[in-house]
C-alpha cells in the first residue's frame, strides 16, 4: 500500500526504539503514510498497524487523538492558523480572517477546486512570530502580514 521509500523511512523510525517496542514508531509511521496518501483512510491506518505488529484499533486511537493527522480528505494545501491568545494579541485572528476572505472558505472547509483546506490551530510554540500559520503541517510561516499571505497563497496556487 505504501511506497518502498515510505517503508524505508518507517524502518528508520522503528530502529530508534528497542526491538520489542515497534509501536513507538506509530506516530512517525502515520505521519509518513499521511504524507504519501494525503490523508489517513481507515485502510491506511490498518496497514500501518499491521506493519508495526500492533492492533489496528491502537493505531486508530493514536491517529484520532493527535490533531495533525487528517482522518478526512483535505485540500492539496492545508493551512492552519494559530488564533490562540498570544497570537491573537498580535494579529492572529486578523490573519485568519484575511485567509478566510481570500479563499472564500471558513475553518474546516476546503475550496471547491480542492486546493486549499483551512484549519484553526492551537498553540504552535511560536507566539513571538505571530501571526503564524502552518502549511501542510510541516512548514511554519512567521509574521504573516496580509502582503505575505497574498504571496504565500499565490505561490501555493501554482504547486
Amino acid at each position: 500500500m505504501l511506497s518502498q521509500e515510505s517503508l524505508q523511512q518507517i524502518d528508520r523510525e522503528i530502529a530508534k526504539y528497542p526491538p520489542d517496542q515497534k509501536q513507538s514508531a506509530v506516530m512517525s509511521a502515520l505521519r509518513i503514510a499521511q504524507l504519501e496518501m494525503g490523508w489517513l483512510a481507515k485502510e491506511t491506518i490498518e496497514f500501518v498497524a499491521g506493519y508495526l505488529d500492533m492492533p489496528a484499533i491502537a493505531a486508530y486511537e493514536v491517529a484520532s487523538f493527535y490533531n495533525m493527522y487528517d482522518l478526512q480528505p483535505v485540500g492539496r494545501h492545508k493551512i492552519t492558523v494559530c488564533t490562540n491568545l498570544p497570537c491573537a494579541l498580535s494579529g492572529g485572528v486578523h490573519a485568519a480572517d484575511y485567509v478566510k476572505q481570500k479563499l472564500g472558505i471558513d475553518f474546516n472547509e476546503t475550496t471547491p477546486d480542492g486546493k486549499f483546506t483551512l484549519k484553526e490551530g492551537e498553540c504552535m510554540g511560536a507566539c513571538g512570530d505571530a501571526p503564524v500559520l502552518l502549511v501542510n503541517n510541516h512548514h511554519m510561516c512567521s509574521w504573516m502580514t496580509t502582503e505575505k499571505i497574498d504571496q504565500l497563497l499565490a505561490d501555493l496556487e501554482d504547486k
Binding site: 530508534k16 526504539y17 513507538s24 512517525s28 502515520l30 505521519r31 493527535y66 493527522y69 498553540c123 503541517n137
Partner: peptide, 10 residues
C-alpha cells in the same frame, strides 16, 4: 539519543 516528534496534542 533519538528524536521523537509529537503531532498536535498539548
Amino acid at each position: 539519543l533519538f528524536a521523537h516528534h509529537g503531532y498536535g496534542a498539548y
